[in-house]
Design a protein around this nucleic acid. Structure first.
Lengths: 192, 192
DNA sequence: GTTATTTTGTAATTCTGGGTACAGAATTTG
DNA sequence: CAAATTCTGTACCCAGAATTACAAAATAAC
């Protein structure tokens, strides 16, 4: 109906996500975004309205891709405990391999903004819910196959595993985290 | 030797800690600090040099008081598992009772600053180390008394417990955390 | 009581963050 | 092609952040 955009908003959101992930919300300036997305300020504000709106889009995108990746890993065939280990190991390796030590955008945002921004808080809650659901389903399967004791409460165990993931993503940001993360994974698997 | 300070720097650091804890580092302005400490800007900068230096003093103080409180709880008499439960419950209740949902200053600061501020990152690592040590000692005691299986690796289990605490303090900040935290504690105790 | 020293409060000061205004360019529709 | 509409880039704007400057005040030492 009129002049078309010269950039792809979806790609732009992805790029914005990287910036927010690396620097945090408050520390990211409009100029950082303009530089990273390679568009003008006019286009930025025309397309996304405000820094916060763009941030929320980026955070939603992050949640969706991350939870999908976790569910995908947990859904692969094999013994249940091995699948849990694979998922935790993937997360640990991801954090350790990242030279920027960005951790998890959602947990970082929770720490930074959950108190004042309800929308961010709800987004994080949703992400934890999805993570817990995925673990609960897996644990129930493990109890059917006999890999996990039927006396354990799947809901509680799932909450614990989701919490372990959340913790790892913060702990993975402090220096010399490798041994810590390895210990956490080993002890977790031995606790199932 | 000259004019004495009209305020107690120790108390001022405590008050600054409260502000940083509530608002985060970047979101705290010198004006916020001046208001909370009830001193002038001149005094603030004369006494502490810069916002960052004051923040680091506050963070150190936080680490010291928090770790001391945890160690104190874990050192109380009673069965080992009950002591772990008491410590986790105390943390959960603290987070749930706080109307501001501030979580843990050290973990919040890690999420916000660990990537760029080595001093903050090292401080957080130290706090995790102390926490882990306290749990490890307790677990060793549990293995001596037979409360905890001797086949388990105390170091790994301690890392897991410290990580559980770290996770809880983030997770406790999202809405409707009570059930989640209760589940986490129950599953943790059942995993020992 | 004078001097030296440190603290205090107020008033600048500088810089940046987040955003707006606007003129011109690129489209679609008819 | 004209009209209507939406995008783009540049320039501008204003508030507030973090600090500094400085004069006046309070004290200790002599």
């Amino acid at each position: 109906m009129a002049r078309p955009k010269e950039f792809d908003p979806e790609i732009a959101v992805d790029q914005a996500m990287e910036v927010f992930w690396r620097k945090g919300y408050a520390a990211t300036t409009p100029q950082d975004l303009v530089d990273a997305l390679s568009i003008g300020k006019g286009s930025l504000y025309n397309a996304f309205g405000s820094k916060r709106e763009l941030f929320l889009r980026a955070l939603r995108r992050y949640r969706d891709t991350q939870t999908a990746a976790l569910v995908e890993t947990l859904d692969r065939p094999g013994p249940v405990k091995e699948r849990v280990r694979a998922a935790l190991t993937a997360i640990a390796e991801m954090d350790l391999a990242d030279p920027d030590h960005r951790g998890c955008l959602a947990m970082n945002s929770t720490a930074e903004l959950a108190r004042t921004d309800k929308e961010v808080a709800d987004l994080s809650r949703r992400m934890l819910d999805i993570t817990e659901d995925a673990f609960r389903t897996l644990i129930a399967e493990g109890q059917r196959t006999g890999e996990i004791s039927p006396t354990r409460d799947p809901a509680a165990l799932a909450a614990l595993l989701a919490n372990t993931v959340a913790g790892m993503r913060i702990v993975g940001r402090v220096p010399e985290a490798r041994d810590r993360l390895t210990h956490i994974i080993d002890a977790t698997i031995n606790s199932l």
